[in-house]
């Protein structure tokens, strides 16, 4: 009776559930990718994000000017409108120049590099640390577990910006310090996500089966449970990268984050802020647009990933 398929109750919407029809067997990755690209907005988001990452990586090779090479900038070119040219008409400042005469486009490309770098690096470190702590806590259980989770809950009950503010007030400025703060702000999310997943996964049959096979618990955790949490971790960390980039920009804007020598997009915006009221809007505006596009495209990708990966999680 292999040709008779199981039928679900057709009441309400259950009929549209997957599995009513035999779906052609495709790998999960191909299926997920196909599903991802069904949304045009998400596809555009992914393309823009890819372009931005490439541009950020190649900044030193493609930007018209090295904005931190004092030799290449001329104070005479300061506060030029977008589209202006240098005195000798050799270069065009597509997005204008800042108060020092730096080409805004070049500054933005370098700033993008720093913003993206800080965001991704801090998220990855937080992801690793948070996952290890989360796994370790649920592995040990008992008091250590409940203590760690108390700390996690306590920290998460405070807004990220407040925690970061305290940390940076204590630590001072610097790229290492801001990464450290962003890691401390983020790790708790991953620890909690991992732990709640482990609690669910643990009860599932395959873990029972692995236990019956006599596999050591560590092996079960890292070899079996962790891979099953991966889709959710991917979704969380995508969204958190955007959050980290925005937070770093905000802190830098408040004068708490990056040092002036390593201007991220946030710091570029802050630098232009004081000239804005006098009408030199572009010094602040374009870095802001770059930041905005970066964050929106990451969020679009993250949103779609959540939709695509979540049904798999539920199964």
């Amino acid at each position: 009776m292999a040709d008779i398929n199981e039928v679900k109750q057709p009441d309400f919407n259950s009929v549209q559930g997957d599995g009513v029809l035999p779906v052609k067997e495709e790998s999960l990755l191909v299926q997920s990718l196909k599903e991802y690209f069904e949304s045009k907005t998400a596809a555009i988001g992914l393309i823009i994000l890819t372009v931005m990452i490439v541009v950020a990586l190649l900044a030193p090779y493609i930007s018209p000017q090295n904005p931190y090479d004092l030799m290449s900038i001329d104070i005479m070119d300061s506060k030029l409108e977008p589209g202006s040219k240098t005195m000798d008409e050799s270069t065009t400042f597509v997005l204008g120049t800042d108060s020092q005469g730096r080409d805004m486009l070049s500054s933005i490309l370098y700033g993008l590099r720093i913003s993206l770098g800080v965001g991704v690096l801090s998220t990855v470190i937080a992801l690793i640390i948070g996952s290890i702590i989360g796994l370790w806590a649920s592995f040990i259980g008992g008091r250590t577990d409940s203590f760690i989770m108390r700390v996690v809950d306590l920290q998460l009950s405070f807004p990220a910006i407040l925690v970061a503010l305290i940390l940076l007030a204590v630590l001072g400025k610097g790229i290492d310090k801001i990464i450290l703060s962003l890691v401390i702000v983020q790790w708790a999310y991953y620890a909690r996500a991992i732990r709640s997943n482990v609690l669910v996964e643990r009860r599932k049959e395959y873990v029972e089966a692995a236990k019956c096979l006599g596999l050591p618990q560590r092996r079960i955790m890292f070899g079996h449970v962790l891979p099953n949490c991966t889709p959710e971790l991917i979704v969380i960390s995508t969204v958190k990268v955007a959050g980290a980039i925005a937070l770093e920009a905000t802190l830098s804007f408040l004068g708490l984050g990056m040092p002036i020598t390593e201007p991220s997009l946030g710091l570029l915006i802050a630098n232009g802020y004081k000239y804005m009221q006098s009408g030199y809007y572009w010094i602040s505006f374009y870095p802001g647009v770059a930041l905005l596009i970066l964050i929106v495209s990451i969020n679009l990708v993250g949103d779609r990933l959540r939709d695509v990966l979540n049904p798999r999680l539920k199964k």
Binding site: M1, I4, N5, E6, V7, V20, L21
Partner: peptide
């Protein structure tokens, strides 16, 4: 009764109960 109820999407041709 052997077997299961058929999928409502591909109800077999003829009598729907014939398989069982």
């Amino acid at each position: 009764i052997p077997g299961m109820t058929p999928s409502l999407i591909n109800i077999p041709e003829g009598c729907s109960f014939r398989m069982r």
